[in-house]
Structures are given as structure tokens and as C-alpha cells.
Design a protein around this nucleic acid. Structure first.
Lengths: 213, 213
DNA sequence: TCGCTATTGTGAACGCCGTCCACAAGTTCT
DNA sequence: AGAACTTGTGGACGGCGTTCACAATAGCGA
């Protein structure tokens, strides 16, 4: 009669890898409800541990959220890489470079629609001013989402599609367009748009970027 | 010795217009810290009233937030209208239509940078699926931000700059680009970009939209 | 004018949250 | 084996949103 409802179910006093467990629980929470849903107490509950235990691994809820955010960013990078990997092999290098950029864009949008909670979490506010030197938010290629986009643009220049004069800062423009659409569909006035419609607008948006860059 | 620190300073038992007072306080809070900062108890405190009193006017914190959001959206519309009003008078109708669209975009961006808290609040999640039939989020012209953009695009078509075939859904594309830049600069990887740089990217972004639409 | 009634603010409470403190149970090093 | 460090516990605090019962007022019909 020891195991009634929720005895931590942990044989050892130490947890083993509480930090990971908390991040995983946090990711699950974020997946379901965005950044606000990653609640420290709930994460510890899921890890079978008392709330304070979290403070041995994170100095505050913000810091846990930061770790979850990195994980979300990494998931985004993986989604983009997956989209890239699904590309048919080359014909014309210019076409290939274009397809590359497009894959980046559609991968981004797909992830936003498939994992809205994680996507929102990935871009929740308190990002440190420091650059992208965080080794946790990258994908398999070792690049974070921003760097993946940059690489696609570089290929576009190399293929002669994008004049070098317009290369500088081009990631800001492309990113803005795609990110904006994602946000508007997720949180904004375009919420509840049918997935098919969203996809078609996404296509047109990529057209616009390609043409206007 | 009645008025020591914070005696509600209210002579009548009734407040007069508590609903307005709460919204105003909420707007002030949102201005300073975005949607999460609009805290029901703090708003009532500022209105010199006990927390529960709010429930006579809003059924929940969400509903108060909704009212604040409408106010923020309205402020955005006004900012866009102001930008539009500052336009020099016509030369070529095509140029004028283009300038119009540009004013919409830069007004949007300017507002986002000048009032980040309000801007973020305007696009906080729980918007009702119903359309824009809310009379509180419009500007002086009676149009909400989305409708203002639509009007600018219509003028573009009327001036023969934008082929009618590409008109449908064009607001989604233009809005996405500008909204995305605003989000990236406010919350995303572009945070802390110098205002001058931001402005210049904004210009290039508008170029891209104009060219790519 | 008086009293009824609907409205609007009050008081006290509940449960949840993040966070802090002092303490206990293991682990690791010597 | 014992000291010193790490990691989880127990209990507490204040703040939050929200609920219920109650009090003060305003507006109205008689």
C-alpha cells in the first residue's frame, strides 16, 4: 500500500538527469500551449520532483524557458533541413539554388503550422543580445535557422541568380516575409485560414521574395 | 489624517466610469510591458478600486486584455493614417498610389518601433474568429489596419500599377513582409538593431514588396 | 417622498504560481 | 571512514486570477 496515486516513482534519491527531464517536460508544455504554458511547477511535477529542485538546474523560470526555446529553435532547424533534404537532385544550378531557398521558406512555414506552440516559443521575447553562439538551437548540420537561410542565399549568389550587390542583408528581407506570414496565420488576423489556402499564399509569398529580392 | 498613502481618493462610492479607467490603465501597462503586463489586479489598483470590481465590467482578465488589444489596434490604425496624411500631394497618380502603400508600411513599422508594448499587445493571441466588425479597433477613417492596407492596394490597382490579376490576397503578402520585420526586430533575432539600420531595411523591404507583388 | 430593486464596489477566501530559506539524503574525494 | 559538495525536500511568502456573500448606492414606480 505504498504506491497509491503519485509517489514520485523514483527509487534513487537523485533523479539522474533532472535538467533534461525538465527541459523535455517544458518542451511538451510549450508544444501544447506556447511559451506561457511552460510552467515551472508543472514541469517539476512531471519530472516527479518537488518545485524547488528545478532551482538546482535553472536559476529561474526564465532560464528554463530559455532552454526550451533553444530546443524549439533546434527543432525548427531540423524541420528546415528535412525539407532541404527532400529536394530532387540538380538540373540547372540556378534552379537548384532557387529551389533551395524555397525549401527553406516552406520548411519554416510548415513547421510553424505543424508545431504552433513550439514555433511561438522559439520566438518568445527574452533572447539574450548575444549572437547565435548557442550550441543547442542548431540542427543536424550545425546551423541554426538563420544561418540555414543565409546559406541558401549564398548559393543563390553563387548560382548567379542573385546579384551580389543585393546579397547583404537579404536574409532580413526573406525572413521577414516568411516569419510574418507564419505569425499572421498563427496569432494574427489570418488565423483559421484553411491549410490549403495558407500553403498557396505561402507559395505566392515565396514568389514575391524571389522576384523582389 | 485621512489621506495617508493610497486612500482610493474617490469621493463617491461609484467610480463613474470604471470600465474606461480599467482599459486606460491596461493600455498603460501594455505600453510598458506587452500583453503579459496587463495584470488585472494592477489595473484595478490604478483605478483606485478593489480587484473584484473589475468583474462587474469584464468577465475575465482575457476580456480586459481583449479591450486593451482593440485599443492598441486602433492606435496602430491612427499611426498609419497619420503617416498617410503626411504625404505630399499628387503628381503622377501611379507614384501617388505607390507612395500610399509605402506610407502604410512605414507607418506600421514606425508604430511597432515606437510602441513595442502596444504593438505586441495588438497581436496577442486570443482573437475571436469573427471578422473585424469591432468598432473599437479602427482609426479616424473608420478603417482598421487591415482595411487601410486593402485600400492602399486598391488605389494601386486603380492607378494601373498593380495588375488586377494579382490583387486578390495581395494584402496577405504585403502585410506578412512588414509584420515579419516588425516581429523580428522587436522579439526576434534582429532585436537591438540600430533604429537607422532598421529603417533602411524597412525601406528595402518595401522595395521588395513593391517589386515582387 | 418612500421604499423596492438592479447595479456596482467591498471583504475574505481558494488554489495556483514563482521564489527563497533552512535542512536532509546521497555522492565524491581524501 | 569522514569531510565537503551536490542535489532533492519541506515549508513559507507574496502575487496572481477568480468566486461567493455582502454592503452601499442610484434610479424608479408608487
Amino acid at each position: 500500500m505504498r504506491a497509491s496515486s503519485a509517489p514520485p516513482a523514483r527509487r534513487t534519491y537523485r533523479h539522474g538527469d533532472l535538467r533534461r527531464a525538465l527541459i523535455d517536460a517544458g518542451v511538451e508544455l510549450a508544444r501544447g500551449g506556447g511559451p506561457d504554458a511552460v510552467v515551472l511547477r508543472e514541469a517539476t511535477r512531471r519530472a516527479g520532483v518537488v518545485p524547488n529542485a528545478a532551482y538546482r538546474h535553472f536559476s529561474s523560470r526564465q532560464e528554463l524557458l530559455g532552454a526550451v526555446r533553444s530546443a524549439a529553435l533546434s527543432a525548427l532547424a531540423v524541420a528546415m533541413e528535412t525539407e532541404l533534404a527532400g529536394l530532387g537532385s540538380a538540373e540547372d544550378p540556378a534552379d537548384l539554388a532557387r529551389a533551395n531557398l524555397r525549401a527553406i521558406g516552406t520548411g519554416y512555414l510548415r513547421f510553424a503550422l505543424a508545431e504552433p506552440g513550439l514555433f511561438r516559443t522559439a520566438f518568445a521575447v527574452p533572447r539574450e543580445p548575444g549572437g547565435s553562439a548557442d550550441p543547442d538551437k542548431v540542427g543536424k548540420s550545425g546551423l541554426d535557422p538563420f544561418e540555414l537561410l543565409g546559406a541558401a542565399l549564398d548559393r543563390l549568389v553563387a548560382a548567379g541568380v542573385l546579384p551580389e550587390a543585393r546579397r547583404a542583408g537579404a536574409e532580413y528581407l526573406a525572413w521577414s516575409a516568411v516569419h510574418g506570414l507564419a505569425m499572421l496565420v498563427l496569432d494574427g488576423p489570418l488565423r483559421g485560414l484553411a491549410p490549403a489556402e495558407t500553403a498557396s499564399i505561402g507559395e505566392r509569398l515565396c514568389d514575391m521574395v524571389e522576384k523582389g529580392l
